[in-house]
Structure formats: C-alpha cells, structure tokens
Design a protein around this nucleic acid. Structure first.
Lengths: 144, 144
DNA sequence: TTCCTTGCAAAACTTTTGCATTAAA
DNA sequence: TTTAATGCAAAAGTTTTGCAAGGAA
C-alpha cells in the first residue's frame, strides 16, 4: 500500500484497475474520461464531458468521447440514463440506486436504495424476469 | 344520448369533446391523430403514427404529427415517455400508472398504480415537492 | 507488422422551425 | 376576412460511422 498517495493518484489507480479488469486498454483519452467521471458519483452528458476535457487542455474528439462512453457502459463501468428525451446522461454510480429529477433545473440527484421500499410489485409477465428498476421522482418547485 | 352509436362514433365524439375541453380546434389531421391514439391505451412513436395515418390514406406531414403530439401533451391529453434515449413514446393513458419495459422487444406494458405500493419514499429536497413518479420495471427474457 | 484507437468529417436520426399555402371560424 | 393549421424543406441537435492517420504491442 501507499499511504502517501494523493487523492488524484488514488483516482488514477482506481481507473486503471477498473479498466484493466474489463480488458480495456488505458489510453490517454480514456483515462481522462474515466478520471473525470469516476472521481465522484455524478451525471454528465457527452457534451459536458467534451467541454470539460477541452477546457482542461485535453485533445479529444467528440467521436472518441462517444466511443469511450459506450465502451464503458457496455462493460458496466458507467450507466446510461434516459430521463428526458433530449440527450443521454452518463451516471458514474453503477450501484443500484434511484433518482430525483428537478425538471426546472434539469438536476439529477441520487436516491439510495434503502430510501425506497416497495411493499408490493407486480409479477413480471410470463417468460420474463425483472432486470432492474428505473425510478425517477420528478420534482417541482414548491408553491408555498 | 344515442344508444345506437357505433364504437367508432363513440371514439370520434370522445375525441371531439376532449379537444373542445382544451380549446383545441378539431382539424382533420388532429382528429385522425387523436382517434388513433385515444381509441385505446397504447404507446406509439411519432414515426409509427405517421406511418399508420399514411397507410390508411390520410394526408399528414411529419411536422403536423409532431406539432399535434406536442400540443396534445401540453394539454395533458397524452403523455410523453422517455424509456430509451432513441425516441419519444407517446402514451394515450394519462392516468397515473407505471410501465414494464421489455428491453429485447422494446415493448411497453402498463402497470396499474395499485400493483405497486411504496412503503418508504425519500422526502423531496427543501423547496421542492414531488411532481410525479416515473417507474419503469425493465424485463429480460427468463433464462430457465 | 499487426491490431487497436483517434480525429475529422460526413452521415444518420429524431425533432423543430421558417414560410408560403390552405383551411377553419 | 381574419386567424390559425398544414406541408414542405431546411435547420438544429444528438449520436454513429467511414476512413485515413497515429500509437501501442
């Protein structure tokens, strides 16, 4: 172990390890995208990721951002969300969880699984089983 | 009352009434779109609606389909769903309800509210209140 | 060398918009 | 007649793809 590792180093190593576990070659662009997303749980669009990387001086193309996000998603490193039809959001929290969605601001907030409890759920149709539950609690500004 | 009204007539009148209630002018194209959607609860994409209307001989443009769907949605006559990022689905069932989503086939199946019961839900963040709950139970083909 | 990744531009797709024409009140 | 709706084509926005160039093994 390295008790002197900086937070940035820890994130870098975690990204390398997770990509290696999936057999994904850790190129410079992929590492930057992984570092950005996996440094903390967050929801980002492809455009936001591209802008963020470029403003920090990275040389990345839009195609590579999409390629990388799709690659990561296909390996379960991130998760693609469909909350509004306008664009995809990429969630770096792949543990089971739900979301608040503030429609006015577009903000997404994680809701931990233990905060939601189902006392009844319908049985899946014959020949199918439940693959997962997408729960979005839409929020509006309180009138009061 | 008219005890001899055919099912088609009943649908036509119900569409006229619902559009009138919203102050929407019942043009030929709008009536055809409303009749298609509101004849029974279903989930259709804009492209499906356009194709269906044209194959039944109607003269409608893509722009009018989108204009009309947005108009209907803004008046609460239909509801727009975001289940996959690929396209919008328009749900003619505007009563509160949830969905099964068979990812393999793309099929959407309604889940009535009484079939789901929450025994715990997180409190909405300060300054906000719950506007609605979108619940999608993802289905996969059973392995067994 | 061989295979994979990147960047760029173009293409594909869904949805919106501008504007002249047409239909409804 | 006056206002609103329609159709068409073009535009806009997001995501994918083809391909030449670059980089890693």
């Amino acid at each position: 172990m390295d008790a002197n590792a900086s937070p940035a180093e820890v994130v870098t190593r975690r990204c390398q390890r997770r990509m290696a576990d999936c057999g994904i070659r850790p190129t410079a662009q992929r590492m930057r995208i992984a570092t950005l997303l996996l440094s903390e749980p967050q929801h980002l669009s492809a455009e936001q990721i591209l802008a963020s990387l470029r403003s920090s001086g990275a040389r990345v193309s839009k195609a590579t951002v999409y390629n990388t996000l799709n690659l990561f998603a296909s390996h379960g490193l991130i998760r693609q969300l469909s909350v509004d039809g306008a664009r995809a959001w990429f969630d770096s929290n792949v543990d089971a969880h739900y979301h608040f969605h503030d429609v006015a601001s577009g903000a997404l907030i994680d809701v931990p699984v233990p905060d939601v409890e189902f006392s009844r759920l319908p049985p899946p149709p014959p020949g199918t089983e439940v693959d997962g539950i997408d729960l979005v609690i839409r929020l509006r500004r309180k009138a009061s």
